[in-house]
């Protein structure tokens, strides 16, 4: 296990067997590599921008968010009203299992979108409906918890100032025609009155 490392001359011999890339060669490769890295970062930004620009907007509500979560991190975990759904919305032939990808059909009800059905495959939609992709996080006998990849919201300073108490949020989700979704805007709703 504690094999002695080869001594310097041996290593030198190994290096001559596999010499480093010649300099012009290396520089050409490096140019390609750095170019690819820059393009990749640009592509991430472009995907984000295009989703916001060309996507259809879905309005979702969250359960109240605690501003105290922001003391130690710059994001909050969002829990949407469509994160926990009753089991009767499931339209698959077999029971959903954890980590399965699912498609959630959303329909506007009084300004906010609500889930009307959950499918294991991408379904056809009627006018006004939107499909959001998600994953099964947990299942119980009468309900299931879904994850959308939209649960983490990095709170900008402006929103942070408005969030004074435990308040629900109204989240604008942009869903691109190619299926990518992202949070595009967030409004802080008034706090629910204590019962």
């Amino acid at each position: 296990m504690n094999a002695p490392s080869p001594s310097a001359p041996e290593r030198g011999a190994a290096a001559t067997r596999h010499p480093p890339l010649p300099k012009p060669h290396r520089q050409r490769w490096l140019l390609w590599l750095v170019g690819a890295q820059l393009l990749f970062v640009l592509a991430v930004a472009a995907a984000g921008y295009a989703t916001g620009r060309f996507g259809s907007v879905v309005l979702l509500r969250t359960t109240p968010v605690d501003p105290r979560d922001l003391r130690f991190s710059d994001y909050v975990e969002l829990n949407y009203t469509i994160s926990l759904l009753p089991g009767h919305l499931w339209k698959g032939s077999t029971l959903p299992r954890r980590k399965d990808p699912v498609y959630i059909v959303l329909e506007p009800r009084a300004g906010v979108f609500e889930a009307v059905a959950v499918y294991p495959e991408r379904p056809e939609t009627a006018q006004g409906q939107t499909v959001l992709r998600g994953w099964v996080a947990d299942t119980w006998r009468r309900s299931m918890r879904l994850r959308y990849g939209l649960e983490r919201y990095y709170v900008p300073e402006e929103t942070r100032r408005k969030l004074r108490r435990q308040q629900p949020l109204q989240v604008h989700i942009s869903v691109a025609p190619w299926g990518q979704a992202r949070i595009s805007q967030v409004e802080v709703l008034p706090a629910l009155r204590p019962r």
């Binding site: 970062v41 991430v44 995907a47 984000g48 921008y49 916001g52 990849g149 939209l150 992202r182 949070i183």
Partner: peptide, 15 residues
């Protein structure tokens, strides 16, 4: 850069 750009457009956690 990947992480900060993804954060900027709220893309974290998607893929």
């Amino acid at each position: 850069s990947i992480i900060l750009t993804s954060q900027m457009y709220q893309l974290i956690g998607y893929d």
